[in-house]
Amino acid sequence: MSTALLEHRDDAGAKIGMWLFLLTELLLFGGLFVLYSVYRFRHPGEFHDGAMELNLILGSVNTLILLTSSFTMVLSIAFLRLVKRGASLLALAMTILLGLLFLVNKYFEWSAKINHGIFPNSPELLARSHGEILFFGLYYVMTGLHGLHVVIGVLLLSIVMVWMVRGKITPDRDIFLENAGLYWHLIDLIWIYLFPLFYLIT
């Protein structure tokens, strides 16, 4: 690569690129929201029954965890801007830990359901009504895809943390941290909708 390219740096451009990517992520989930809205429209009662079986406490706790992790994420960026590297790293580490905690909860939630015989194509589930099969199908697919994004987010933040320790990210060169933050907030954003759509159906 020529040196001219290495020197080329456009933070505003990098941010536009990141936002465009986030939009594609929104639409990726968007396809699932199309399915969700159609099937909920057709089976309101069964979706309610399905939601009653989900663990509202675990779901709520995970919501609080993810919201708090978004908070620590913005703190990390704000601290870096104030040239408080230690505080910034600490906030970033908290974000990663909260992300992992979310995954641990998700693991317990899923395994409890699976132990009760509720998982895609399970005999227990197939014996139920169509609406409930669809509800749990969407539940696994949507929270699964979201969980996958949390995993990717945690990995991304860890890489950013390494870069920060190595001095590749500095107060006047924080675009990587900012963009990773945007990605993390998007994960939060999607969960903000998934939570009421799956756990809170009356």
Partner: peptide, 8 residues
Amino acid sequence: LATPIVGI
């Protein structure tokens, strides 16, 4: 805007 839909 359209490709992610076919992706999913």
